[in-house]
Write a protein that binds this DNA or RNA. Structure first.
Lengths: 279, 279
DNA sequence: AAATTGATTGCATAATACGCAAATAAGAAC
DNA sequence: GTTCTTATTTGCGTATTATGCAATCAATTT
């Protein structure tokens, strides 16, 4: 086996780590990058390794529950342990944990469905979902992602997240909107208009959409920010009634209050709740 | 390094896999099992490995983004990539499809007919059906729905689904039972008795009926839950032999195991209080 | 039926992961 | 401020084992 002298290639080895493990974990990342089940050959090609090597890695992943092999076709997919690892990682985020505790209450008092979303590489991602009293059966589920411009949740991240992470994604959505000819009532597909919108969202602490992303679905969203003013979580209420949008609606007030209470005010105060004790 | 001759120890190696990778993944699982950041020593002790070995694994995990090292004190925690991996696994994880793959096997080893049911607006609805070796011709088919109180499947949904969605339906069935004069051996038509029954079902992870809904038909059912502890699917075994009901019957054990394997265990922090609780 | 594609498994060998122990760093005690 | 204690990190030699190759097995197509 050859050791890498220069790690200028993508996926170099870890300093002080283990080469075999680095290689294996890169396979895991490849497996994740597929949209669904993948064949051994595809995974091996994408990872740039011989299939036999990848096959042995996958055997261990399956043993650990991180991967599964479907039926007899031999295609590989992520397994249950991968999901549990993810929820464990998410639950380490204290903002998510604390907001989750009260999300059900928020859904109850507002009479709407509620969700929490965090930023992942696919964009805003649902990590918690509380269906309201009116069981609105939507296509939204755990792990769903939203667009930046066409969703209330996406617009909140657009307004609070630093530009670099958003730039390419925003550019794509703007171009796509321009080519398809979509336009918004409150937004034109140019940077100045986007800037005006995000400023407004930050000022009002609310973003909303009125049935554009999913026809007939009304949603309002607000940001939970950390001590640096960066967004940690977006809280979103959604339903089918337009009164959600009115400036003085109880639901809107409750949402802003909820987000404020779970945010840490920019002028950091001393009584800051420390993170939970280990064990 | 010593190779395991006997894999009777917990956490044996994978057949055809890689020993180093198995060891590393067991460390990852240990890291997940903590509620928060953990020290190297703790992780090593819990994993039963020398700290130096674990340290090298963690270096690779950090390189892959699966773990992070907080501050300079050197405590380790799950990283961003772990969360990404999880949402990828969840978003492509369809509980029905996943469970369907093994439903035939479950029917085979238990010698019973098996079905999967989800909640729809008509109540518990059969979405997959596997007739057992003894082709019991019943009136159950794809799209069939069950009552809440007179079926094992219905009782599982009754025990796991939030009250609002069930309230009217439950009320109807209770009233109807009272008017017709039906009674159950394990249930009286009042809220307190229903509560006692559902508590028992959640504790034992099993609901059953003994030929009441369909005369002569014995059924046991268990819940597959998602990472919020909400029911996604009910798995039901049914046949004509009463040994299904015995606490130590192989079929019952296999059913509970099946449901557990397909459920995603919610972490402690996100554990939702099942019943109403004052804050 | 033949052929093609893809998954799995022996095998020999060289590469490397392991354990041990030294070194470094961080806290605690005084 | 200095010493003591505890915990994390890193060399190093060797035996273990991960690897590439190629054969085998299975499944699907021509």
């Amino acid at each position: 086996m050859r050791a890498k002298e220069t790690d200028d290639e993508s996926g170099g080895t870890a300093p002080g780590g283990i080469q075999a493990l680095d290689a294996a974990l890169s396979v895991l990342r490849v497996l994740r990058s597929f949209d669904g089940p993948a064949t051994l050959s595809d995974i091996a090609r994408e990872a740039g390794m011989p299939p036999s090597k990848v096959h042995r890695y996958l055997a261990s992943f399956i043993h650990a529950g991180l991967a599964v092999q479907k039926e007899r076709s031999g295609r590989y997919d992520l397994g249950r342990e991968a999901a549990e690892l993810g929820v464990a990682a998410i639950s380490r985020n204290n903002f998510v944990v604390r907001a989750s505790d009260e999300l059900e209450e928020l859904a109850g008092v507002t009479g709407q469905a509620a969700l929490l979303a965090v930023w992942s590489h696919n964009g805003p991602t649902v990590v918690r979902l509380e269906r309201g009293p009116h069981l609105t059966t939507t296509s939204i589920g755990l792990g769903s992602t939203f667009p930046l411009l066409d969703s209330a949740t996406g617009r909140v991240f657009l307004s609070y997240l630093p530009s670099p992470q958003l730039a390419v994604r925003l550019q794509n959505e703007l171009e796509r909107a321009a080519s398809v000819g979509v336009s918004w009532p409150d937004l034109n597909p140019n940077p100045a208009s986007v800037e005006a919108l995000t400023t407004k969202i930050r000022r009002e602490r609310i973003a909303y959409v009125d049935g554009r992303y999913i026809p007939g679905l009304i949603a309002i969203s607000s940001a939970i920010t950390n001590w640096q003013g960066e967004i940690e979580v977006a809280v979103t209420l959604f339903g089918t009634h337009r009164e959600l949008l009115q400036p003085d609606s109880p639901a809107r007030t409750a949402l802003i209050d909820f987000a404020s209470r779970h945010s840490i005010a920019p002028p950091a105060q001393l009584g800051k709740p420390r993170d939970a004790r280990a064990r």
